[in-house]
Amino acid sequence: MSASPITEIDLHAYVDGQLDAARRAEVEAYLAAHPEAVAEVHAWRTQNQLLHDVFDPVLNEPVPLRFSAALQRKRWPQGLVAGFAWLSCGLVAGWLAHGMMQPIEQPRAFAREALAAHVLYSAEQRHPVEVPAQQEAHLVAWLSKRLSAPIHAPNLREQGFSLLGGRLLPGKDGPLAQLMYESDTGERLTLTVRHAVQPQPETGFKVMEQGGTRAFYWIDSDYGYALSGGIDKRRLLDIARVVYLQLHPVQN
């Protein structure tokens, strides 16, 4: 008998550790053959960890002694006590969630994520990208869907770089799109793109450097961009300007 199809419910259960050994093995076999599903699973795990990081400290706080004493002195009906507990948790969670939904205000954090992802994946020889450049239309459509905003792949052939492909990355404030470019001599650049729900204060080009690798990053309304590479700083800046002009052509 053939195994039942793997659905999104199975993938969520896999992330939450709710599958038995047999079904888990089937899901892992499915993931081995579907790299786009691996990206989703990775993003969900990252999202779960972020939620734990935010809410666990509150949920694990001990009840203040003055509240415990008050409850012991007065025997509240169990249902009423539970209602107050749920209301308190809801108010705290709502306040924290409100903070999480605020506009992204830390472009340097985004640049660090982009730079770290560049270092990690630009060194890959066999699997530098999830979707190769031969499927550029699919790649751009997929990343646009995942970021809920149009994504474009700049043409850098005149600068000596051809599109190698791209991948979806988990980010602290939401998914990121990474486009990788490669020169004839094997140099690699990555353009990392994020999309925010609300427009952000725009910035000019800023640079971040780490271990001989650098990223020029900028915020343009509800988009953030970071061009990363290990090439000469001036050359990288020139290419960043080309990227900017292609994404925002001058209107005659």
Rank of each mutant, 00 (worst) to 15 (best):
P199N: 03
A177G: 06
Q134P: 00
Q178P: 01
V131R: 10
H152R: 14
L31M: 11
R214M: 07
E36S: 10
R241Q: 15
S148W: 08
L91E: 07
R75Q: 15
V119M: 04
F216Y: 12
F67Y: 09
G99D: 04
H52P: 01
S144W: 05
I104M: 13
L176S: 07
H127S: 02
Q178F: 03
D173M: 05
Y14P: 03
I231V: 13
V140Y: 09
E40N: 02
Y14D: 06
S68C: 04
G166L: 11
P57C: 09
I151C: 06
I6Y: 02
P150K: 09
R75P: 08
A177K: 12
S4E: 14
Q125T: 13
A111M: 05
R235H: 14
W86E: 08
L237Y: 13
F161N: 09
V81A: 15
A111G: 08
Q106V: 10
D20C: 13
G99A: 00
Y30A: 04
L147F: 03
A117V: 02
P154A: 07
H195Y: 08
Y217D: 00
S162H: 04
L179C: 03
H34N: 13
S148H: 11
A39H: 01
R194Q: 12
V27T: 08
R66I: 10
L19E: 15
E202V: 12
T185K: 14
A141E: 13
H98K: 12
C89I: 06
W142C: 05
S228R: 05
L139M: 04
L189Y: 06
A114R: 09
Q135H: 14
W76N: 03
A85L: 07
I9M: 01
V15G: 06
P199Q: 02
E130Q: 08
M180R: 00
